[in-house]
Design a protein around this nucleic acid. Structure first.
Length: 712
DNA sequence: TCAATCCGTATC
DNA sequence: ATACGGATTGAC
């Protein structure tokens, strides 16, 4: 389109252009500043284009366009329309407008930029996460501005009812939020000394920030909904981000009850393109002000955002698997700060990273009164490790401690279901102290020890240093043993120990949302536990203690407690007979925390330990994965802040799932650790280094991840 | 002397 | 990335 005849490029006359033949530029604000969808780090900036007169109305800020860039047609977003360009040199014209829909709001753009900077990634990568793919039919079906809700609903229904009905219901009837209002009853928040005042602040248009240790039991979705209702009453919108779809359903149900179906919309990846885009548009057009969804919902373009809630920030589903790998909690923190929104980082056991927000004075801790917790928490007992295995032969086959067998039989006889949490299979082999079974760590960098290639002399998984003479810093034992990893206890074995009892399983292949309130053995892997209808489980058995605690991950204890708490919270309160049996040593801090239902103290202690060892969140860590050559090349051009610890590179401890072809180069991993306050510089340095490389050679395949969830 | 290639550079 | 210009190398 740049050439009148549409064919050749005017290469002879240098950059001169056949201006005379092109249509005139827009009269007002003829320059569009465009964010291009290209993956190149060194091109992570805006480019100016001339807006042809015929696109003057369509190429509005926030809309999608196609432009010619380096000779190729690429997608982009118009971020701004301005009167003139800083660029010296001729401007190309926008090729075409994809749609006038302003999918990007200024607030989302600003957020995306901040997220990209924080993770050393590109704006284009973040925008891809923030905006779902366009669906033209959906847009057309609902695009006429200011149509009545009834019309919108009707057309949405006729286009495709199949995948979009639920969303259309929630999205379209744009009732005024104010009408829904009324005084928000504090509900379960009265259990928190600071609860009522927080609700008052939310209702008054303020933006309190808190880390919320939720009470055991099924109250948390209602509590979230109460907080959201207060914000809605203040005339603002809210976003709730949860790990998985079952949680979306639970919170959505509570929200619909608290603020009404008209204002609530569920954003979830499993909706399918049409329904997903429709839900997104409903939010962008202000028809829905309350969003509940999985991780990308944190980018939802809610106007006048008053509150962001994240639930269970330790769940690894909150870590985005696409570059630049942002974490829900961190995005929420950035966004709440930028938009003066309240923030609630909630869970039964929030992470050390969440707790750091409290330590920094950025958020306050919301903890229920001790007496309230005693009232709600189940009765927790530990069986120790491998002692007391039941004498019953069937139970012995399943390696069930006698306490478990006895308790389960009692509870089943009393008519209640029993939940059994079993480990997933296939944890990584690593080394631990023979004496106290704590994971063995490198004396130099505190990385986990393992045996490279499965055998051979012990070495650090981070810095690669071989370990000569090891001695446990806790108990002094010089012996190393392989941690027990993975477990083959099956539901079948359990079933044999309890003949005649209905057996239900929930896990990878088939996740149950609920089970009825009747005697049954419910076997589940962590994270897949169904909620028991009625009063909850009579007993919860946690059989995965060793597998969870023996992992080399520095979050092993935190993760164990988090998973135990999530399952234990499904049990009835102790006063109502609810019991929890955890198959781990009662002396371990995580087990103690579960027994006393005191995750606050546990997390504080974890935070202290990590700070003492220089682990995140006291430090920030970048992981660089790629071929040895590519990693070395990056390291070569990298200008790191001072001080910075460079660990490795070492051959990747976690080989890709699929076996590599024989001649493929071995993946290596480099870790870089800097003090927390140097995190921004580290991100910038990595961004710059990748830019230099990208312009030079193909270093594709290099994966740079800041604050990775698992570092070894 | 021309053409096939290799670099280095800019991409609105 | 990728398209282009300019320099370099190679064959006629």
């Amino acid at each position: 389109m740049t050439e009148p005849s549409g064919g050749e490029r005017a290469s002879k006359g240098g950059r001169r252009r056949a201006v005379g033949a092109a249509s005139p530029a827009a009269e007002v604000l003829p320059v569009a500043r465009v964010a291009l969808d290209i993956p190149l780090t060194h091109l992570d900036r805006l480019f100016d284009y001339l807006v042809p007169a015929e696109l003057a109305d369509a190429a509005v800020p926030g809309s999608r366009v196609r432009v010619r860039f380096a000779g190729r047609l690429v997608d982009g977003f118009v971020l701004e329309r301005v009167a003139s360009s800083e660029h010296d040199g001729p401007l190309a014209r926008l090729e075409r407008s994809v749609s006038a829909e302003q999918v990007l709001s200024p607030a989302v753009v600003r957020l995306a930029r901040a997220v990209a900077d924080r993770y050393g990634g590109t704006l284009a990568d973040v925008l891809r996460l923030a905006v779902p793919p366009r669906h033209a039919r959906v847009e057309a079906a609902t695009s006429v501005e200011k149509r009545s809700p009834a019309e919108v609903k009707a057309s949405a229904a006729e286009t495709d009812g199949a995948d979009g009905a639920a969303v259309a219901d929630g999205a379209v009837e744009a009732g005024g939020v104010g009408e829904v209002g009324g005084v928000v009853a504090p509900g379960e928040w009265v259990r928190y000394p600071a609860g009522p005042s927080m609700l008052a602040a939310l209702g008054d248009g303020r933006w309190p920030r808190a880390v919320w240790w939720a009470p055991p039991g099924p109250a948390w979705p209602r509590m979230i909904a109460v907080a959201v209702a207060a914000v809605v009453r203040s005339g603002r919108g809210a976003i709730v981000v949860v790990p998985d779809h079952r949680d979306v359903d639970r919170v959505e149900a509570a929200l619909v009850e608290a603020v009404g179906r008209e204002t609530t919309v569920a954003l979830r990846a499993d909706l399918g393109p049409a329904a997903r885009y429709r839900a997104f548009l409903a939010v962008r057009r202000g028809q829905a002000r309350v969003v509940v969804g999985t991780r990308s919902a944190v980018f939802a373009p809610v106007e006048a955002l008053g509150l962001i809630v994240t639930w269970d920030d330790g769940d690894d589903l909150h870590a985005e698997p696409l570059a630049p790998y942002p974490h829900t909690r961190d995005v929420a923190v950035l966004r709440a700060g930028q938009e003066h929104a309240a923030l609630l980082v909630g869970g039964f056991c929030p992470t050390v990273e969440a707790e750091a927000l409290v330590r920094a004075g950025w958020a306050r801790a919301l903890v229920a009164a001790r007496a309230q917790l005693r009232e709600l928490a189940p009765w927790v007992e530990a069986t120790g490790s491998d002692h007391e295995v039941s004498r019953d032969p069937a139970a012995r086959a399943a390696r069930l401690p006698s306490l478990v067998v006895r308790t389960a039989r009692e509870v089943l006889a009393a008519g209640a279901p029993v939940l059994v949490q079993v480990p997933r299979r296939g944890y990584q082999p690593s080394l631990a102290c023979t004496g106290c079974r704590r994971p063995a760590r490198c004396g130099h960098c505190q990385g986990p020890l393992g045996r490279p290639g499965g055998s051979g002399p012990p070495a650090c998984g981070w810095c690669g240093r071989p370990v000569a003479a090891w001695q446990c810093p806790s108990c002094g034992d010089p012996r190393l043993r392989a941690s027990v990893t993975g477990d083959r206890r099956t539901a079948e074995e359990l079933g044999r120990a309890f003949p005649g009892v209905p057996l239900r399983t929930s896990g990878r292949d088939g996740v149950l949302a609920t089970v009825p309130a009747e005697p049954a053995l419910v076997v589940s892997t962590p994270g897949a536990e169904p909620v028991a209808e009625g009063d909850g489980y009579g007993a919860v058995v946690l059989l995965d203690g060793w597998a969870l605690l023996g992992r080399p991950d520095l979050r092993a204890a935190e993760t164990a407690l988090r998973r135990w708490a999530a399952a234990a919270a499904l049990a009835r309160p102790g006063a109502a007979g609810g019991r929890v049996i955890v198959g781990a040593d009662a002396g371990l801090p995580a087990v103690q925390a579960l027994i006393r239902w005191d995750p606050v103290t546990f997390t504080a202690r974890e935070a202290d330990e990590r700070a003492a060892l220089g682990f995140p969140p006291a430090s920030r860590i970048a992981a660089v994965d790629g071929t040895a050559a590519a990693v070395a090349e990056l390291l070569d051009v990298l200008r790191l802040p001072e001080p910075a610890d460079v660990l490795g590179p070492v051959p990747s401890p976690a080989p890709r799932t699929a076996a590599r072809a024989g001649d493929e180069p071995e993946p290596h991993r480099l870790l870089i650790r800097v003090p927390r306050e140097r995190g921004g510089e580290l991100a910038a340095a990595l961004h710059a280094a990748r830019g230099v490389l990208g312009a030079r050679r193909s270093t594709s395949g290099l994966r740079i991840q800041l604050d990775p969830l698992v570092i070894g």
